[in-house]
Amino acid sequence: MNFGILYSRIRKDEKLLLSELRDRGHEVTKIDVRKQQFGLSEPPADFEGVDLVVDRCLATSRSVYATRFVDAYDIPVVNHPDTAGVCADKAKNSLALVENEVPTPETTVAFTTDAAMEAIEEFGYPCVLKPVVGSWGRLMAKIDSRTAAEAILEHKETLGHYEHKVFYVQEYVEKGGEDIRVLATDGEPVAAMVRSSDHWITNAAKGAATDEFGLDDEALDLVERASDAVGGGLLGVDLMGTEDGYTVHEVNHNVEFKALNEATDVDVPARVVDWLETKAEQAEVSA
């Protein structure tokens, strides 16, 4: 099979995938998204002969648009652009989870600093302000006081581009210094890890310590439902444990797995490629 890897940067995650695909004898077509021009009807030449495109774009904006074009050309692509569209935006992500009755932190979106301030005061302190688009724990604010809220909102309004004027305010969840990352393929967990830190942000990208995590029935059920909520695919589902059970704070569509691969005994790239092979076979049958 010929797998098209749509990328702009080859991270360790992509290297693991490339190595696994090549070891299995697959043809791999690396497609640098920065060099492509997407017309309305014909795919760029680099996509010729590709059986399945695997979106590994580092930039969310490119991921969302490129997968939409690839899908429009009727070239099978994972993840689907609808999934990318939902996961790329925290507000859409939250709505999708709630619509599918997946527990998720209480969230309010407002469009002016006054309305956002009201929402923050209603949540009380601390609460959390996040950008609707962003990753790796960047630009996240835990707001401990009204004066801090005023300063952050003013900065966002003054310095931010228009997306920063979509104020995404969320309850602060007491998660005991850790959260859980589950890598799942169409709702089936590949592996899971707990990410722990003294900092309130526990992203692996922020240096959180990681360890293998065994999922109980409640978590298994939530991962499946969270995956369904965003349309399935190769996903990173993030959960927090609370006194009342788990809550899912987001689902990532362009999931990194190098930290997970090191934290667990599971051969994560092998399991991912198993799934990619299945998707490519399914696409071949339905073509």
Binding site: S8, R9, L58, A59, T60, S61, P131, V133, G134, S135, W136, R138, L139, A205, G236, N252, H253, N254, V255, E256
Partner: peptide
């Protein structure tokens, strides 16, 4: 030179 980090990079 590698591109500078952009705001929408990530997962």
């Amino acid at each position: 030179s590698a591109p500078e980090l952009e705001e929408d990079w990530g997962e």
